[in-house]
Design a binder for these strands. Structure first.
Length: 109
DNA sequence: GGTGTTTGACCGGAG
DNA sequence: CCTCCGGTCAAACAC
C-alpha cells in the first residue's frame, strides 16, 4: 500500500489460483486507478518467487509517481526494451496487448 | 474508517 | 451434454 510496486503503479490483487503444477500459483492484479483498467498476472513458483509477470491490459494513464520519479526506477521500464519487435507492444487499440516479463528468480533465489 | 489482501465459490468457454 | 480450467467477484480480515 501507499508505495508503488515494481511497475510504479498501484496494483490491487483480486484473485489467486493454483494451476498447472502444484508449485505454480497465479496472482491476478488490477490497477487501483479508477480511470485505468490495466491488469497483470504474476506467476509464482513453489517459493512464492515471481518467475513471470504477464501484463494483460496496459495503463491509459501515467504512473502515480509524478514527482521526482526519475531518480528511482531501477531499469525495468514497462516494456521489455530488450525485445526485438516490441513495436507490437504499442498496440493499444489492437485489442490484446500482452507482454511477458520474465524476472530473474535468481535475484531472490 | 478506508483500502488492499486473502480465500472460496461461481461463471463461461473449450474440449 | 458433461467436465475441466481459466478468470472474476464478493465477504471477511488485516493493516
Amino acid at each position: 500500500m501507499l508505495k508503488t510496486t515494481s511497475d510504479g503503479y498501484n496494483w490491487r490483487k483480486y484473485g489467486q489460483k493454483q494451476v498447472k503444477s502444484p508449485e505454480g500459483s497465479w496472482s491476478y492484479y488490477r490497477c487501483t486507478f479508477s480511470d485505468c483498467d490495466a491488469r497483470k498476472i504474476e506467476c509464482c513458483n513453489q517459493s512464492n518467487h515471481v518467475i513471470e509477470t504477464i501484463c494483460r491490459i496496459h495503463h491509459n494513464h501515467d504512473p502515480p509517481q509524478k514527482v521526482n520519479f526519475s531518480k528511482e526506477r531501477p531499469e525495468l521500464s514497462v516494456e521489455p526494451a530488450n525485445g526485438s519487435n516490441n513495436t507490437a507492444l504499442a498496440v493499444a487499440g489492437s485489442g490484446l496487448s500482452e507482454c511477458v516479463l520474465s524476472t530473474s528468480r535468481e535475484n531472490l533465489f
